[in-house]
């Protein structure tokens, strides 16, 4: 049976601020603007065929993560990434985690931030990263191990 989805406007009103803040953290303000539009256009394209109406937040974060990783993989100096004003509305633990993970490879960083910052399950992270839940778990724990080593240095 087709789920009863909220009007896209309600879904957008509810999650757009948080997604924009997430993308600004990951990409900097300028690149976040394009990535934001791309994220919600992808969401809109898929919305009519969604089979589950629960956890739309997790779903849109997986899309945003895909878009951010695509953007990061385009060759540009990484130095730019940390630029852009930090939005005030990012919860402190996420901001801290985001700073902390700045030097991790993109996939590990995404896995760590989504798992420990946004509290997504490995299934959701896996679809964001285009991998399996096992690979998502491995990326998160490899990221955490790398952070621990860094801390000990």
């Amino acid at each position: 049976m087709k789920p009863v989805l909220p009007p896209f406007e309600s879904f957008y009103a509810r999650h757009s601020g948080e997604v924009f803040a997430f993308l600004v953290r990951r990409l900097g303000r300028d690149r976040a603007e394009d990535a934001f539009q791309e994220t919600f256009l992808r969401a809109l394209r898929a919305y009519a065929d969604l089979r589950r109406a629960e956890n739309l937040r997790g779903w849109v974060f997986t899309i945003a993560t895909h878009v951010a990783i695509d953007e990061l993989r385009r060759a540009r100096p990484r130095v730019e990434l940390a630029d852009g004003p930090a939005p005030e509305d990012v919860p402190a633990p996420i901001a801290a985690l985001d700073d902390l993970t700045g030097e991790l490879p993109p996939t590990e960083r995404a896995a760590v931030v989504l798992r420990y910052g946004y509290d997504l399950g490995y299934g959701e992270i896996a679809s964001a990263l285009g991998s399996s839940p096992e690979a998502a778990r491995a990326a998160a724990s490899s990221g955490v191990r790398r952070l621990r080593r860094k801390e000990l240095e």
Binding site: S16, G17, F20, Q37, L41, P87
Partner: peptide
């Protein structure tokens, strides 16, 4: 939660309509 900047919000709404992705 801070709102999305108005220019970014407008741009998305315009792009969504222009791409023919809306039912309404």
């Amino acid at each position: 939660m801070t709102a999305v900047p108005a220019s970014v919000d407008d741009a998305f709404r315009g792009a969504a309509a222009a791409a023919g992705l809306l039912d309404v």
